[in-house]
Computed example of a mutant assay.
Amino acid sequence: MPNVVQFHLGYRPSAQLGESYSLVPIASLSKSILQFAVYAFSALTVLQALIGRTHYRKWFLVYLAPWVALSLSSLLATQSFTATSLVYVAMGLGIANHEDKMALLRALGGLTALLAMVSLVMVATTPNALMSQAHLADAKALVGTSLLNGPFSHPNTLGQTLAIGFPFVLMIKRRWMRILGVASVALALVWASSRTSILAVVIAVVVGLGWVAVKQLGRFEKVAVGLPLLTVYALIVPVAIVLVGIAGPDSFSNRGVIWETSLNLWADRPVWGWGSDVYGSLSQSMRNIGVLAFHGHNMLVNALAVGGLVSAAALLVLYVVIIRKSWVQGYREHNIAVSMFAVVFISIGWFEVPTTFYTLGATSWVAWAAVGLVLALPRALSVPGGPDLLPATLDGRRT
């Protein structure tokens, strides 16, 4: 909301690290109100957990692991702690206290669809909703010469947010709302031209269609389709490592030089890394990559640079559990939407960092909630005579 107001009454800041800019008064007020609401919700959630009888299961430890690792890393590297990161903990507590996880996932899908619609409407109301690439040599726009950034300062941020929330748009109950939501997200995603996000969604859709086939085919055919699906889930993390290993300095839109620099930094502090603010320091001291390195542009590389082997290990554990949860949801529960999440989230991490599980950013609301909710899902969701969790857009039925 603050950015929507800012873009209409002021200007869109350029997406560069270290940039300072002033919000117009109304945007500043709306930001303060939003921050107060987030912090108040976080405080109330923590209080409820302290006085209530919240039952914490193993998933909560997995959820907290990356946050704990980076908190310790930042304390050791810079003797600092970011208080706003506690929102991540509060969100996990809120998820633990909420009984209907599926309803929250549907709400997340609805918010994702709403974001796409707002972004598209903003095109007609403010020029700040678009980032022109008419004069750039490496223009990547798939629609015209402009990229859709919506209420964000960069199209990639919009793309990642929409991609992470896309699987849950498929869970919206009303058919016409679900179709409208999917269409809006697809159009906004293509217009944003975030190639990593588009690739992640395409892979996830292929996986989703594979699960549809597994549900409807015979036993032999299920094996024939299931093995490729298993291969995708098994290789989705190693691909992130392979890409870094084969990259040259100019590879993948200059991500190669960011990866090389990040890994060189990690080699100097291999166990605990350099803390959450390391890329902010790079923007000031290394101008050759400073304007490019918002982060490590790869989840594992970023984890190594900011939190060392400890953070990387916590991330890998979280990845493995999310993959397992997604596989179970596809194989046992026929919940294709949730089964697609691991594919989207981890493949975005090949070239981007949708979250550090520590810094409160533009994508945190969808990334943190989605990770926590998927981790918190029980092994069995179906009950005799209960609803089929397969998205209606994939099997043609209402849910």
Results as ranks from 00 to 15, higher is better:
Leu309Val: 13
Ser364Cys: 01
Tyr319Met: 05
Gly110Pro: 11
Leu389Cys: 11
Gly372Ser: 09
Leu390Arg: 15
Gly386Ser: 08
Val225Ala: 02
Leu93Asn: 09
Ile236Ala: 03
Gly165Ala: 00
Ser285Leu: 07
Trp327Lys: 03
Asn97Leu: 14
Val46Glu: 02
Ser251Asp: 13
Ser193Ile: 10
Gly144His: 13
Pro354Ser: 09
Trp365Glu: 12
Ala83Ser: 15
Ile95Gln: 01
Gly275Asp: 05
Ser28Trp: 13
Phe41Asn: 12
Lys58Arg: 15
Trp327Phe: 11
Leu199Pro: 10
Gly349Met: 05
Leu235Cys: 14
Leu9Val: 09
Asn264Tyr: 08
Leu86Arg: 08
His98Glu: 09
Tyr11Ser: 14
Thr125Gly: 02
Val301Lys: 08
Val46Asn: 00
Ile198Leu: 12
Ile172Asn: 06
Gly273Thr: 08
Thr126Asp: 03
Leu209His: 08
Arg287Pro: 14
Gly330His: 02
His8Ala: 15
Leu142Tyr: 02
Thr261Cys: 00
Gly110Asp: 07
Gly296Trp: 02
Thr126Cys: 08
Pro270Tyr: 08
Leu76Asp: 01
Leu377His: 04
Ala367Val: 15
Gly94Phe: 05
Trp59Ile: 06
Gly52Ile: 04
Ala116Thr: 06
Gln284His: 12
Val5Leu: 13
Ser42Gly: 10
Pro66Phe: 03
Ser184Cys: 08
Lys222Ser: 10
Trp67Leu: 06
Pro228Val: 04
Gly218Lys: 11
Ala188His: 10
Val239Trp: 11
Leu377Cys: 09
Gly94Val: 01
Thr84Glu: 13
Thr356Pro: 07
Tyr358Thr: 01
Asn156Ala: 15
Ser253Gly: 14
Leu217Asn: 13
Gln216Cys: 00
Gly110Cys: 08
Val205Arg: 00
Val87Leu: 07
Gly248Gln: 09
Leu229Ile: 03
Tyr233Trp: 05
Thr356Trp: 09
Lys173Tyr: 15
Ala247Asp: 04
Pro378Ala: 06
Leu304Ile: 08
Gly386Trp: 05
Asp277Glu: 14
Trp368Gln: 01
Gln160Leu: 10
